[in-house]
Design a protein around this nucleic acid. Sequence first.
DNA 1: GCCGTTTTCGGCCCGACTGTTTTCAGTCG
Length: 570
Amino acid sequence: MDKSEIAEVLNEVATLLELKGENRFRCLAYSNAARTIESMSEDPTAVAKEGRLGEIRGIGERLDEQITELVTTGGMKFHEELKSSFPDGLFDMLKIPGMGAKKVKAIYDKLNISTLGELEYACHENRLVDLPGFGTKSQAKILAGIEHLKKYRARFLLSDALGESLGIIEALEGFKGVKRCSLAGSIRRRVETVKDVDIVAATEDGGPVMDLFTKLPGVAEVVAKGDTKSSVTLEAGINVDLRTVSDREYPYALHHFTGSKDHNTSMRGRAKKMGLKMNEYGLFRGEEIIPCSNEEAIFKALKLDFIPPELRESQGEIEAAEKGELPDLVEESDIKGVIHAHSNYSDGSTTIKDLARACAKMGYGYLGLCDHSRSARYAGGLDVSSVKKQQDEVDKLNDTLNGFRILKGIESDILSDGSLDYDDATLASFDFVIASVHSKFNMSEKDMTERIIKALANKYVSILGHPTGRLLLAREAYPVDMKAVIEAAAEYGVVIELNASPHRLDIDWRECRYAKSLGVKISINPDVHHLENISDIAYGVGTARKGWLTASDIVNTLPARGFLEALARR
DNA sequence: GCCGTTTTCGGCCCGACTGTTTTCAGTCG
């Protein structure tokens, strides 16, 4: 059992105890333990088996027992009993912004409401306003929160959808009746959130393939099953559609089901102008099919350069492909440095040394360490003395890492007045500074834009971190005029981050081309908190590709020295 | 539930914001 799974159970216990109305410090003990486990450098399962958990500060006799039970048996009785004493719907309510355990408890206890639907109805009936601690505003806020949840309930993060679908692709590829298969749809175009997973497979006999598909592990429900089209719902809640076609039809079907709809419309229009007809079964001149063994051939037949799936969003890609002006898109292998990593100095789970080792092992040449700054207290932000201590440690480490380099960075909070939270001398001690907004999200668009632009004008700022602050499917971006921010970045020579966390993917790909047109450079940063986040770079690269970016638009495709020189150009 | 000790209880916990209050509770990062 890995760290985050253990932490999840402990956090759930904390929430459940709060729902029960337990002493808040008892609840806190569990959420503290969750954080402690998550930031352990050793494997907690191994530590538990060696009986050393109790030595860790914050884990006493009882938690030692319970965590050991969890990692040895895969479950925790205490957790299960607590969980079964509340209806599942309460957990949905906790997803409403502004609703914590106390408020959910009040609603459950006083109004006997246990599902989102009941809660929505009660809000419409104006029944929350009389509840102590609630009023008209909180009722309206809850209603808006439910609306938001409903709107996004049917969508999934790209990373989750990919994670769920890779096993299916593997199973299909391994099946002897399948000649070739691929993800299609928005997931193949690397859109940041997706509604479902589309798969196209080439086979001469769909029946057995569909038998396999509908019985794969993880399938919760078969929505529809035929010889050429089946649809299932996975236990994770996501829908997966499989289309089977003959191998001859496969390239056309793959293109058709990859979309987007608008891209396809334009492509069909182009075919028509050339006296051809295009659909999911082929490209035809009259009755005669124009043979294409892959997608490249289809584009070629339409006198176009190959358009990578990420670009098929009807953003001028067909015109560019016609003129041979498509960009040579950045690839994952172009990325040379891992920028924006949190160590266990702040809220990361890993030591600097282990971070550097992992990056080096994955073939990267440098690590841009960026812990939180001092005003981010919730995340263990570094005070000035910790900064000094960390920088000394980095200097020592750098002497030992042949060729690999750790850069001294920081993720400095942009305070509400646009200033940073260190003095100039401290800021000057870093190799580079990422400036990010982490507080006061509810400013007006005008104030927020001014706040960020003021930070960009600070000569120590090298990179603007996650420029909109959005958390996909969870929190809207704060209001900000991105056009003005990009223009300011161009004026001051500041690089903009493309935060590669699959929860953020921020800057949005739709804004990348404007940045590029003004010469603003982008840094694809995985915002590492745990070692496994390093590979999130792939999602950032997908988003950058959607934004038409090439390796030369991205500063961390350069070696360490070039990267720092590019940042210094302001 | 954990911890430390003034050693078996009492304190633990950061600050801003919001919406509810009229001095504060709950939520969040």
